[in-house]
């Protein structure tokens, strides 16, 4: 396999993933909402967001937050990383003009009896000191250069 890949043996509990900074704009919010086919007005209509929802501006929608977390994780694992599960909790919203920072730390790493290499990661998306969303993710990575988590099907894939 010629694509770069992070192998399970190179990962240690407590490892920090490289942080990711991004300047959010109104385009970020609207593009993310429309890409996820989310037509609700609080993600594109300032007046609705402020005067109906009581928020300070339009804000990133949930499916797009998931896409940001996925990008963050697979930037680290490379394309052989296969997401198994994500749980995320929204504490606060992300608005245009926010500089959001995503950080992650490995909390567990195990190879199951059927030789699947799992890694658990705690991820935080924050704007300054304001934690907006937290995410607990479980991702499978290859245990050696011949392993490919994407080849698992049916009972051999147990996220």
């Amino acid at each position: 396999m010629s694509t770069p890949q992070l192998l399970h043996g190179a990962i240690t509990v407590g490892d920090d993933l490289p942080p990711l900074d991004h300047e959010v704009t109104a385009t970020t919010v609207v593009l993310g909402a429309l890409a996820s086919r989310d037509w609700r007005p609080m993600h594109h209509d300032y007046d609705f967001a402020v005067n109906r929802n009581g928020t300070q501006d339009i804000f990133l929608n949930t499916p797009n937050l998931a896409a940001w977390f996925e990008r963050y994780i697979t930037d680290w694992t490379g394309p052989t990383g296969r997401l198994g599960k994500m749980t995320f909790r929204m504490r606060d919203s992300v608005y245009p003009k926010d500089l959001m920072t995503i950080r992650g730390t490995v909390t567990a790493a195990e190879v199951t009896p059927d030789a699947c290499g799992w890694v658990d990661i705690d991820i935080t998306l924050a704007v300054g000191d304001r934690v907006c969303t937290t995410c607990a993710a479980r991702v499978a990575v290859p245990i050696d250069e011949d392993d490919n988590p994407w080849s698992r099907r049916g009972d051999t894939w147990a996220p």
């Binding site: 996925e70 990008r71 697979t74």
Partner: peptide
């Protein structure tokens, strides 16, 4: 189209979604 628009919205450059050879190889 939606796949590329979604990747663009979060600047996701994972070659799995942009390079057919990688997708053929892995998935």
């Amino acid at each position: 189209g939606y796949i590329w628009t979604t990747c663009a919205s979060v600047e996701n450059g994972n070659p799995l979604y942009w390079e057919p050879a990688v997708a053929n190889d892995l998935t």
